[in-house]
Write a protein that binds this DNA or RNA. Sequence first.
DNA 1: CGTCTAAGTGAGTGAGCACTCACTAGCAAG
DNA 2: CTTGCTAGTGAGTGCTCACTCACTTAGACG
Lengths: 211, 211
Amino acid sequence: MNERKPAGSRRREIAGAALKVIAEQGLARFTSLAIAREVGVSDAALFRHFPTKEAIVLAAIDRVEEILFTGFPPRVDDPVERLGTFFRRRIAVIRENPGVARLVGSEQLAQAAPPEGVARVAGFRRRSQAFVRECLDEAHSRGLLADDVGPEEAAVLVLGALLALAHGPAAGRPRAQLPERVWRALERVLRRGGRRPATSRPTRPRPGPRS
Amino acid sequence: MNERKPAGSRRREIAGAALKVIAEQGLARFTSLAIAREVGVSDAALFRHFPTKEAIVLAAIDRVEEILFTGFPPRVDDPVERLGTFFRRRIAVIRENPGVARLVGSEQLAQAAPPEGVARVAGFRRRSQAFVRECLDEAHSRGLLADDVGPEEAAVLVLGALLALAHGPAAGRPRAQLPERVWRALERVLRRGGRRPATSRPTRPRPGPRS
DNA sequence: CGTCTAAGTGAGTGAGCACTCACTAGCAAG
DNA sequence: CTTGCTAGTGAGTGCTCACTCACTTAGACG
């Protein structure tokens, strides 16, 4: 028999394993046996901690929410800079948790989840989109946006860049700073007067605090 | 017994039905029975025309290629305008074949396909990305690009916008012109001198010829 | 018309899956 | 140590799915 663990910790472990399997192996290989092997127990053991496989998926969705939305929304005054902080954090999250982006972006989680879970994942997307829109609307009404780019189009550009960077290959070394360059390009494009020579006042690098 | 059809036509019909099922119902409901019901025959009949379900998926991938890459690449001299033509065509394709974008963008097809198919779908993405990069590199070397946006960043913006528009909701009426506005914003941002007051010389509306 | 080919069918078959159950055994408290 | 609790197990169970097979019959052709 395998090592025994208290229920709470096993639950988290199982949810994490589910996330890992679905992210690394895809839906087709996302079976209770695969989850169990990842944890190192028999498949029957899973059902001591969760009533169904769907419940495991829901717990995995909880984990995704935790990963995506800690320290959200960033509290930064300037709306464009706030958007930049969000952008960089999302990129970091995607880098550190490969697969999570693919999960939320593609419909894979939705396929495995009960309707409740599908709705929650859709909610994650809406929440991120709404945040981007709000930043841009605020920037617009404060007169910070360049006037040849409406906030609606700007939102598509920002969200799209995020999607493109997330779906791209795991970003080999030479391309590591690409996201940063993309954001700087975006900021120049979005900010009123942001297109003065590139030395104007670029974004603060913010090595800093993860709220 | 059902109406009999010659083999070639049935094959195409089955591939199309597979595409429809996988796009509309998702991977979980993508079963041979579902395909068969879509066509209007029994599931056993499918295997008169294809040796395996995987072979059906491969045929569906052929169909996707046909849909995505007819009239590709556009033959337009100005690289930015060429990119615009591509952008608009892709948007149109996505609009007319809902689901196809989700298929290629998300990993759904990959989950159902044998490795050969996965590679082909990855090739579709690479081909589109390479085209975008080539347009932008050419524009750059011809001095057409604004000099505060490198071709690499520009490619992320263009591909991202495409992704964001494709993944968005099926675009209710009021938002119908959003893709056009997004492209115009992109063009202003990319072109050297494209940011003179918005009345300068925006994109030609091109009501015109589908090559 | 009769003949032959092959598209179509209903009833399987075996494999893999989520989930169950009777049972084992680690661990905490008395 | 004994007792009680529960995490863990191996051997199922029933279900769905891809695929097969013996057979039927549409329909092209002489």
